[in-house]
Simulated assay, not measured.
Amino acid sequence: MTEYSLNKLAYRFGQPTETAAIRQQPEHFKVQELIRVEPDGTGEHLWLNIRKRGMNTQFLMKQVARWAGVSERNVSHAGLKDRHAVTEQWLSVQLPGKPDPDIRELENDDIQVIAAHRHSQKLRSAVLLANRFELLLTNVSDPQAVVERWQQVSRGVPNYFGEQRFGHSFGNIDKAKQVFAGKRVKRHLQSLFLSAARSWLFNCMISQRLEQGQFETLIAGDMLMLAGSRSHFQNQGEADLPERLASGDVQLSAPLWGEGYEKLEGEYLALAQSVANSEPELAEGLVKQRVKMALRPILLKPEHGRIDLVGKDVKISFVLPSGSFATSVLRELVSYQDASGSVHADLGE
């Protein structure tokens, strides 16, 4: 039986030797959603920018639905945010033919409405552009060493899916295997479990590329993604590709396994296939479930990064594109202990 652990995955700069704690208080982990759409001021959807403390997104949506007097189906979110944090996130609530409810009746010590605007469409995940993080590391073994290591980490880390994607003790992968064996589950749960399976294969592909010394270099058949875009093309040996890769104009990728992998070529296919062959139950199950292959960049680069000493603590802030994980940045910086004591389903996406 396969034993799953993020500890098996390779590091870009070697496993960090310094230790620290995260989230001794919710205020030590702050997240702010950055969206790509401005509400237009009219329409039946009320967009709310809400600061919350000590609650996850699903709980907040229940509170908003109760406040607005609508079904939870009428409340939408752009991204999921964790309970053990202070987060600012956007929700929308559909209010056809209804006036705006009284904002004051929604607010309390743990919920504050930052902005409320009408819009012609409901909020969708594609609206989420990025997340801004502000994290306080406590019980740091050597704060100055962490500051110095940040200079490396800020260059970019493996774009691993974090432990929260996989559930407690990697239970979501075991549940994916049950789905592959024929067990029926609710559609949204099936999507979660299948996503965990191909997220693990993706992580292993990055790790293997790191171990082979190919994390920053082109290989035959590489599928390259245009920076900030899902557009992609195959490495055909163009002379300018190394320069474009070094400048950040294009990004190396790894496949999210599924139907269509057979169209890959060269060393790129060989590397992906070797990982798939090591996990045949996952790889074959995803194809049988008709999951379509997609691409994801292998490098995650924190933007607008800053690090400061705060007494014996270390404060870091950075921006990550939607769908990426702050814990993947932290993993390269320090060996951390999560003081909240739980594995989280939705941190940082």
Rank of each mutant, 00 (worst) to 15 (best):
M1S: 12
E3L: 03
L6V: 05
L9E: 10
R12H: 10
E18M: 05
Q25D: 13
H28T: 02
Q32C: 12
R36G: 12
E38M: 10
T42G: 11
R51A: 14
R53F: 07
R53M: 07
T57G: 03
F59M: 06
N74V: 07
H77M: 09
A78Y: 05
R83E: 08
W90R: 01
L95A: 05
I103Y: 08
E107Y: 05
D110N: 14
V113W: 04
V113C: 04
V113L: 03
A115K: 12
H117I: 08
H119L: 09
S120H: 08
R124M: 09
R132N: 10
L135T: 08
L137R: 01
Q152E: 10
S154T: 02
R155G: 15
P158L: 00
N159A: 00
F161K: 00
G162L: 01
Q164V: 03
R165N: 01
G171V: 07
K175A: 15
F180I: 10
V185W: 12
H188D: 05
R198N: 13
R198I: 08
F202N: 06
N203T: 04
N203S: 03
C204S: 09
I206N: 06
L218Q: 12
L218A: 12
L224A: 14
G228K: 03
S229N: 11
R230Q: 15
N235K: 07
E243Q: 14
S247E: 10
Q251D: 11
W257L: 01
E267I: 04
L269D: 14
A270H: 13
E281S: 15
L282M: 05
Q289R: 06
P297I: 08
L299Y: 11
K301I: 12
E303F: 00
E303I: 00
G305P: 00
L309V: 04
K315T: 00
F318C: 06
L320S: 15
A326G: 13
R331A: 02
H344F: 14
L347M: 15
